[in-house]
Amino acid sequence: MSSIKQFQVTFDCAEPERLARFWCEVLGYVIPSPPKGFTTWDEFTRSQPAESQGSWFACGDPSGVGPRLFFQRVPEGKVVKNRVHLCVRVGTGLTGEVRLATLEAECARLLPLGAVRVRLLYDGNDSCIVMQDIEGNEFCID
């Protein structure tokens, strides 16, 4: 039995392109080239039936190592806490005040993008900052 080497993380959301662009800024991801035969994503979107326009968007790790992120429009808004969330690993290998300062700096970078700080989890050595993206999806900076 072979193991799966690649996977995609899918977000249900209201505004796929806007949320994809937010996560590009958070993770350093990029928007792929538009489908063959189109010079821009806007051109591709305009070619779709009205009900499909803006219904999805995607982005990926430019190195090809991280998973592709896919964003699909759904009619309902977010109601309860996510059952799965992303952890943005900026403090790997760090502890104590150095780790906390690194996480705080990343939090400060994300706030102007529209992220919301929810709470700090800190025990004097290990730390994590719980945040929300621009559509209220929880994620952690750890």
Rank of each mutant, 00 (worst) to 15 (best):
S3V: 08
S3Y: 09
K5H: 11
K5M: 10
Q6C: 04
Q8N: 06
T10S: 05
F11L: 05
F11W: 07
D12T: 08
C13R: 00
A14H: 05
P16N: 06
P16C: 10
L19R: 12
A20F: 09
F22K: 04
E25D: 14
L27D: 01
V30Y: 12
P34Q: 01
P35S: 13
K36A: 15
G37H: 10
G37Y: 03
T39G: 15
W41I: 02
W41L: 13
D42M: 00
E43H: 02
E43R: 03
T45V: 12
R46P: 04
A50K: 01
E51T: 00
G54C: 10
S55R: 11
W56K: 08
A58Q: 08
C59M: 10
C59D: 03
G60T: 04
G64K: 11
V65M: 06
V65T: 15
G66I: 10
P67I: 12
R68M: 03
R68N: 06
L69E: 10
F70V: 03
V74M: 11
V74H: 00
P75A: 14
P75T: 13
E76N: 03
E76S: 02
K78D: 07
V79E: 02
K81M: 00
K81N: 12
V84T: 08
V84C: 06
H85C: 13
H85T: 01
G91K: 00
G91R: 01
T92N: 09
T95I: 12
E97T: 14
E97P: 02
E97S: 15
R99S: 10
R99N: 12
A101G: 06
L103M: 02
E104M: 04
E104R: 07
C107I: 09
C107A: 15
R109H: 07
L110H: 00
L111F: 13
L111N: 11
L113M: 13
G114D: 13
A115P: 00
V116C: 08
V116Y: 10
V118Q: 12
V118A: 09
R119H: 01
R119Y: 04
R119I: 00
L121C: 00
L121M: 15
Y122E: 07
N125M: 13
N125T: 15
D126A: 15
S127R: 02
C128Y: 00
I129C: 01
D133Y: 00
D133H: 04
G136T: 05
N137V: 03
N137W: 07
E138G: 09
F139Y: 01
C140V: 08
